[in-house]
Structure formats: C-alpha cells, structure tokens
Design a protein around this nucleic acid. Structure first.
Lengths: 200, 200
DNA sequence: CGTCTATTTGAATGTACTCAAAAGCGGTGG
DNA sequence: CCACCGCTTTTGAGTACATTCAAATAGACG
C-alpha cells in the first residue's frame, strides 16, 4: 500500500518532467535517489524567513503559499503551489543564503524536495535536465513578466477578475484573506469588490 | 574600421555568454552564423504589437524600451534594454504568435538578433546553450519575481526609490515620462514625488 | 531658431487603505 | 458528531495615495 502511494507520487513528477524531456528507467532511478519525500501538516512551514533555503520543492499533494512579510508586518503572497507545481525561494536557493520567503501549508500537504547539492549534481549526472529547467524557467518567466505588468498596470478589480479567470480551481480552495494577500489588496477591500461584482 | 566594430559587438555577446559557459572558436563561428546584425534609429521599432515575434535580441549599443498599450491607450513599460542586455517578447517568440509588445529605440541602437528557427537549431548544434539559457532564465526569473512583488506591495514612492537604487545609470538616460510608465504611475505624479524627495 | 514634447503645478476626483465592530463559518477537542 | 472558540468575512466611516484634466513653463531635437 505504501509502495503504491510512493509510486504514484513519482508518477506525477515524471509525468511533469516528461512534458519536456524523456528519461529512461536508469535515469529515473538516479533522479529518485536525489529526491526526498516530506509531509507537512496544515499551517506548518516548509521554510521560514531567515533559514537557509536548502531545497526546491515539487508538490505532490495539498496546497502551499509562498509569502513574505513587509516592514509593517503585512503578508504578500508570491505564489500558491498545488499538486504538480514546483516551488521554493529561488533567489536564495541559488545562493544558499537565508530565505526571505516563508512557505506554509494551507492544507495537509506532501512534497518531493531536492537539495542544492543534488540539484547541482543533477546537471552533471543527467545533462538533459539543463533542457528541462531551461524550458520550465522560460515558461515561469512568461508568467511572472505578465504578473509584474499586471501588478503595476491593472486595478485591484481587474487583477481579481484575472485571477478568477486564470485559476478558477483555486477560488474554492483558498481563503479570501489569502487571495487578497496574493492580489496585493486588503481583505476588506476584496470583500467590497466581490459584493459589487456579485450585484452586476 | 567596420571590421573592428563588428568584432567588438561579438566580443560583447561572447563575454556575456562566457559568464555561464565556455565556447571554443568553432562553436563561436557557428553561433555567429546564426545571428543577424541590425541597427535601429531613435524612435524606430524593432517589433510592433500584432507582428509575429520572429526574433530575440541582444543589445550591443543604445537603449530600447519594451512596452504595451492597455485598452485605454496608456503605455506600460515592461523593461528597458541597454548594451549587454537580452530582450524580446518572450511569450510570443516561443509560440511565434503576434506580439503583444512594442520594442522601440530610445537612442540610436544596434542589436544582434536570432530567429526562432535558429534558436531551436542552436540547442541541437551546441547543447551547451541549454545550460546558458537555463541560468539566464533562472536569473531573470529572480528579477521578475521581485518586480511582481514590488508592483503589488510597494507604494509609488518606494518603487521609485528602488528604481533609483537599482538602475542609477538609467536615471540620466531615460526621460521621466518613460520612467513613470515603467513604474506604473503618471508622469505628473512622478514629478510631484521627485519634488517632495528633493526637499527632504 | 522654431516647434514639438516633456515637465511642472494645482484643483477636483476616484481608488484603495485603516480602524473598528458585528456577523458568519470551520476546525478541533470533547 | 456536535458545540464552541477563534479566525475570516462583512460593513461602514474617515483618510491617504494616486489619477485626471487643464494650463503654464522648460527643454530638446532637427
């Protein structure tokens, strides 16, 4: 039973990787040997600000938020990560410095994590992964360029409508407070917006 | 004379690429054969919204802005690109669809451009470039994640101060109108902010 | 030098925030 | 499985940040 579950979490990550590169069984086994499984209970942290960002994560179950606190103590969510998403504090993972982000579970969750050492090793052992990450980062970049532009160009209402359209599955899974922190507005104002939009 | 100038524009791009990978002379020659040189006069366009985004660009001289127009006709600048920077409309370059961005020269400029066909070919001919772009995109991603967070978390004043700190060289090179369009504020309000900051 | 665009200044307006308090909902322990 | 406690959401009043529109001044390029 445990074995079947384990197998299925690897199935998910290989299906993800297989979008861009093909791995043979030997390469898959090698890759698995570089990963660690980890379960996180609701509200627990995968990473806290100030800790060294030792790992990058692939979510196999549940839902997490990546956020930071500004100097006034307000929370700003950088991304939500659900099943089949990659996450981490990339800037500090690369340099192995203290993280500026918190990563917290919004539901009971499970991830596969890879350490910086193994990440570096990966490219030597299986050079194909250069291609995988090249394409993965390319796509992420497109998303973040758009998000950056939306942040400065759209009103709160337009950003909310865009979120609803882009991530309908997250709407019923994430609290309004967290959605507000993702959109960069107060929960009170999101409440006002939703009321107004419902009346239209 | 022309030959020396040509040589120096390639020097710049190889110095840039050499940050992450080493190329031998044969590989360099092959790479050069995939590039095209192009000069753009001040105010002319490298790309316009609606045109197919055929190329990615490396700036060897001058300064360009990448921007889009919203439904009200307001300009939103995604990035400035000066010497030694890569630019283009990445999302539409990858899919070879009509561009959503304009790319316009703010000064008389020169670029090296690579077509999508040659870009795809590049990874087959010189697989090392997977690594180069993996690292390049990784770093760009860090910048854009931060820019996305700043857009929703910081006030206009904080974003301006951050710009001044991060890109001091661009301050004396780019008009306030364009800086305002980059920061997502009106030129009038930037003028007010600067006056206030000067008095402090 | 002249023209066109950028910048400054000010008044009125709109968008989003803060603070406070009430109502609603959901997870946890019993 | 239910009831309670704590957190989330709603609602409202007052305020701050940033925009719009208009007009005057300054500055840059051909």
């Amino acid at each position: 039973m445990t074995k079947i579950e384990t197998q299925s979490s690897y199935d998910l990550i290989f299906k993800n990787i297989n979008r861009f590169i093909d791995l043979n069984q030997e390469e898959k086994n090698l890759y698995i040997s570089l990963l660690e499984e980890r379960k996180i209970k609701r509200n627990d942290f995968l990473l806290k600000q100030g800790e060294i960002a030792k790992y990058e994560y692939f979510v196999t179950k549940g839902c997490l938020k990546v956020y930071r606190l500004d100097n006034k103590g307000s929370e700003h969510i950088s991304m939500f990560a659900i099943e089949d998403w990659w996450t981490g504090d990339m800037s500090k993972f690369l340099t192995q410095q203290p993280a500026i982000y918190y990563i917290q579970a919004l539901e009971h969750s499970a991830v596969l994590q890879i350490s910086k050492d193994n990440f570096d090793l990966l490219f030597d052992l299986i050079p194909k992964f250069e291609r995988f990450y090249r394409i993965l980062y390319q796509r992420s970049l497109v998303t973040y360029i758009q998000r950056a532009n939306h942040g400065i160009a759209l009103t709160a209402e337009e950003r909310y409508l865009n979120f609803v359209k882009k991530y309908p599955a997250l709407l019923n899974r994430i609290s309004q407070k967290n959605i507000a922190a993702y959109l960069g507005i107060t929960p009170e104002f999101l409440s006002v917006l939703r009321k107004k939009l419902a009346q239209m």
